[in-house]
């Protein structure tokens, strides 16, 4: 199932997240991930929703139909800066620990917690980068994993223009 990346600017009011998730459930749209947080304007929040589905027209229209929704943008692949954060705890016997940390460093992962037999890494990056790191860590044995869900921001319009003309 193709994935689509949508940014939704909403009024920063209680219950807006519930409205959005209720609408997704009611309309049988599938959320892959959803993040929400404040923006530069304290009266607005921004949601980044990754949606599974073939066509986004109805998703976008139904989002707009919510009274508290101000702006909806669907980002074409590569059009937005996308970031995700992952915390991943892997088995790390003292004998293999340096090997694991070395591999992680190549990915820009940072060790944020060390236990007697595990190391926990933090990785920030594009979803694909996280997926690759996840794959690599599987060989050592993953104890626990958590992801933030994706956040995204459209690239600066001027920047995009320059990139296109280049």
């Amino acid at each position: 199932m193709p994935q689509h990346l949508i940014s939704v600017t909403v009024e920063n009011k209680p219950g807006v997240l519930a409205r959005v998730s209720s609408m997704f459930a009611r309309r049988d749209f599938n959320i892959h991930s959803l993040t929400v947080g404040p923006t530069e304007d304290p009266t607005r929040s921004r949601m980044t929703v990754v949606v599974d589905g073939p066509v986004m027209e109805q998703v976008v229209k139904q989002l707009y139909k919510l009274v508290n929704t101000i702006k909806v943008s669907e980002h074409a692949p590569g059009e937005a800066i996308e970031r995700e954060i992952m915390l991943i705890r892997v088995n790390a016997d003292p004998q293999r620990r340096s090997e694991i940390v070395e591999a992680a460093t190549l990915f820009g992962a940072e060790a944020v917690d060390v236990g007697p037999s595990t190391v926990t890494f933090q990785v920030v990056g594009e979803p694909e980068q996280l997926a690759n790191f996840h794959e690599l860590m599987k060989t050592y044995g993953i104890v626990s994993l958590v992801k933030s869900g994706r956040i995204a921001m459209a690239r600066d319009a001027k920047n995009q223009k320059q990139q296109r003309s280049a």
């Binding site: 109805q58 229209k61 139904q62 707009y64 139909k65």
Partner: peptide
């Protein structure tokens, strides 16, 4: 008047 009806 409801854009979501169009194309639904």
């Amino acid at each position: 008047v409801d854009p979501a009806e169009i194309g639904k």
